[in-house]
């Protein structure tokens, strides 16, 4: 069959292109352009607010990969991800299973309560949590002391050993509601017939969930894990408000590292936007790589 020339194809589909145009322009302005500029800036020795910007090739990248604080922050970001995502996935699933039960009359109430932190401003949560975990009259320590679980107050956010787990705990609490909602949406795609048929076949309790329900919702699980993993790598506002990466870098994840190098800090360090962009590009590529891996895993699982 004779194929139409490209110009003719475009003309025929002109309405489609016209409707795509606004979105393309906005994507170009707010996604493509900033990404492109950050790549360009990453090749400059530039503070970010002077005219003087020197092209230095890949020197910023070289410096970043040779900086121990860069790698510490890089690894810490993944520790954060691996420490929070499985907990959220499992906990969210368990809660969703319970709240998906139509017999439970208070399910909407519990759903609302668990979802409430999701709609609360993250900066507010960060600040409030610094008071909650304060060793001086903070409710967390008061509870631990009154129940004799500890004999002295714990400096949750000031101790390098406890700061990251504490922030991770707050993160899980803050976003658990959205994971629960994902799972609820997934569970509600399971037709009632399947439950009925399973029961007739004698599958009940954990067997029903392991052998019948879980395989059905597994593709959703992959998507949920992907979304959660990327989310756990973007935790800037929570950490900035709770610890600002401290004490002594103990909770400094990649976003805080990038922020610290991009702006003047408390210690008077001059900003380095070029370097921060290089760190950001490196980090972005790493996250993209993980996303692609997860995507491949998802495709493979679907085939199975």
């Amino acid at each position: 069959m004779h194929k139409k020339p490209l110009s003719k194809q475009i003309y025929d589909a002109r309405w489609c292109y016209l409707f795509v145009l606004p979105c393309s322009i906005l994507t170009g302005m707010f996604v493509i352009y900033p990404i492109g500029m950050s790549w360009y800036f990453s090749l400059l020795d530039w503070s970010g607010f002077t005219k003087e910007a020197k092209f230095i090739g890949l020197q910023n990248y070289y410096e970043a990969v040779n900086d121990e604080f860069f790698w510490d922050a890089f690894i810490r970001s993944f520790i954060f991800m691996f420490g929070t995502v499985p907990v959220k996935i499992v906990l969210g699933f368990i809660i969703a299973v319970f709240l998906n039960n139509q017999v439970l009359k208070l399910a909407p109430f519990f759903r609302t309560v668990i979802f409430m932190p999701v709609v609360t401003a993250i900066a507010i949560i960060g600040i409030v949590m610094t008071f909650v975990f304060s060793p001086f009259n903070g409710p967390a320590n008061k509870f631990l002391m009154s129940t004799n679980l500890t004999s002295a107050p714990i400096d949750f956010l000031g101790n390098p050993d406890t700061v990251l787990p504490t922030v991770m705990g707050v993160y899980v609490w803050k976003w658990l509601g959205i994971t629960m909602m994902y799972w609820l949406a997934a569970l509600q795609t399971v037709p009632q017939d399947v439950y009925d048929a399973a029961k007739i076949d004698g599958a009940e309790g954990y067997r029903l969930w392991i052998h019948i329900i879980l395989p059905i919702v597994l593709p959703f699980a992959i998507v949920i894990i992907l979304v959660e993993a990327v989310g756990a790598l973007n935790v800037f506002p929570l950490i900035e408000t709770m610890t600002a990466g401290g004490p002594f870098f103990s909770s400094e994840v990649m976003e805080i590292y990038i922020f610290r190098t991009a702006f003047v800090t408390d210690s008077g360090t001059m900003p380095r936007l070029g370097y921060a962009c290089a760190a950001g590009v490196f980090w972005g590529v790493a996250v993209l790589f993980i996303t692609v891996l997860q995507g491949l895993w998802m495709r493979r699982t679907r085939r199975i």
């Binding site: 401290g246 002594f248 870098f249 008077g268 360090t269 001059m270």
Partner: peptide, 14 residues
């Protein structure tokens, strides 16, 4: 100038 990392402030904190 760029204050080196870690700065004196951070060293004392550490």
């Amino acid at each position: 100038s760029r204050v080196p990392d870690p700065s004196l402030a951070l060293v004392i904190q550490g």
